[in-house]
Nucleic acid binder design. Structure first.
Lengths: 232, 232
DNA sequence: ATTGACAAGTGTACGCCGTACACCTACCTT
DNA sequence: AAGGTAGGTGTACGGCGTACACTTGTCAAT
């Protein structure tokens, strides 16, 4: 009678199954509420089972980043380096936008996996192929910062969108205390002759900054930049 | 005999005392190991006592950011807007460097305190005083991102400094897999004719990117920038 | 001098977390 | 048939944030 262990013997765990379940869970309810226990439950397994596939939670997060970075479209393009980089970064952005938690996780990771190193190596290669010197490329990569992953750290919170729900009295008080902030927030909010609509257009802001940087890189490159201001 | 409750009745807690003790603790052992319980112990008090002065841990972190931001030297300068902003940002950087944990905390905060809003308002004011339009200033602030606090998100980890401790065999393997990364890492590492010394010079990288951005802002401003590419 | 309100600090307890460690069990190799 | 091994289990521990009920010390009004 001994029934076949269970109806059909569920598909076994694997590192891949663990990681992608974790990504799904983070997409759904945020990375801050992702726990080994909830992840295990989702997979119909006891928490400790996960530890046969990932060393610990840190490594789980590393793996999740790899999954995301692996999704980035790295289709080659024969364009000039600027367009190539631009295209790659915007492709990364498309992916990152679908996994809002990834921003935070990427920033907090300290070890770089093979997948991440490959991505970075390829991007460095784009600048080098464009003729930028090793040194200039080095600085340029630093200047890119997390923008190479397609996100800005949104220090400048979208105070505009929220303005609608703030009582007028408080709005007035804020306008007195933070006149410049309000000026910008209000403009972004109801500037009817612009495209923005609600709040401000994150995509526009991102491309604005990206192009500013790329143009700056190009200018330095054309001027034959060499460690200005440093002794030879 | 009843001794006077305790030798001398310790100085009472206060929000300020709690916050600055938290800052000290984070400076010493990192923000990730800062807990309400350890903080309480440090203050010679039971954990729940803290909750009379901060609502919860989130608010504690907010308050810690305020302490740091409050330290930033905001001495006015009569210079042109570019130098003024540059000076302010580098002042912020000096403070942030002394509190490495603040980077992460500032980035993860979602609510902006009065102190933070004041800082941002002042910085916006600098651009406006320099004659930049509201729109341009808006985009410029986005482009600054967390650089306005004096830090870059160090996505590009200092692989150079670490290279010294990696066995040559692995170094060789890495050079084959990530040639461009290695090229940069090695150059930054033992480029004897540069100032850099060990690894790469973070301060230089920061100023490089900051100046690139500021120069870009200036150029756009001089060209009378108006929402390029957007319909009127 | 008595009262009583109120702010500050305490003690206990709950539910969550990551994970060490010993165990079982199914399967594969020989 | 024997035994090694990889994958899944169960129990348990110490740490976390914090709810809630409590004592205590202080001071103003009576």
């Amino acid at each position: 009678m001994a029934q076949q262990t269970e109806t059909v013997r569920r598909t076994p765990l694997s590192r891949e199954r663990v990681l992608s379940a974790a990504v799904v869970l983070a997409d759904e309810s945020g990375v801050e509420s992702l726990s080994m226990r909830k992840l295990a439950q989702q997979l119909g397994v006891v928490p400790m089972a996960l530890y046969k596939h990932v060393a610990n939670k840190e490594e789980l997060l590393d793996g999740m980043v790899d999954v995301i970075v692996g999704e980035i479209d790295t289709g080659a393009s024969g364009d000039d380096w600027k367009s190539a980089v631009r295209q790659r970064v915007l492709a990364a952005r498309q992916i990152l936008l679908r996994h809002p938690w990834a921003r935070h996780v990427i920033e907090s990771r300290t070890n770089k996996s093979a997948v991440v190193l490959e991505y970075m190596d390829a991007m460095i290669g784009m600048f080098r192929a464009g003729g930028l010197s090793v040194d200039l490329t080095h600085h340029v990569m630093h200047a890119m910062g997390s923008r190479m992953w397609g996100f800005t750290q949104e220090v400048f919170d979208d105070s505009a969108g929220a303005a609608a729900e703030i009582p007028p009295a408080m709005l007035h008080a804020m306008a007195e205390k933070y006149p410049h902030v309000m000026e910008i927030a209000m403009r972004a909010d109801h500037d009817d002759e612009s495209v923005v609509g609600q709040g401000c257009d994150d995509q526009f802001e991102f491309e604005f900054a990206l192009d500013l940087l790329l143009d700056g890189f190009e200018r330095l490159h054309e001027q034959g930049w060499t460690s200005r201001g440093r002794s030879t």
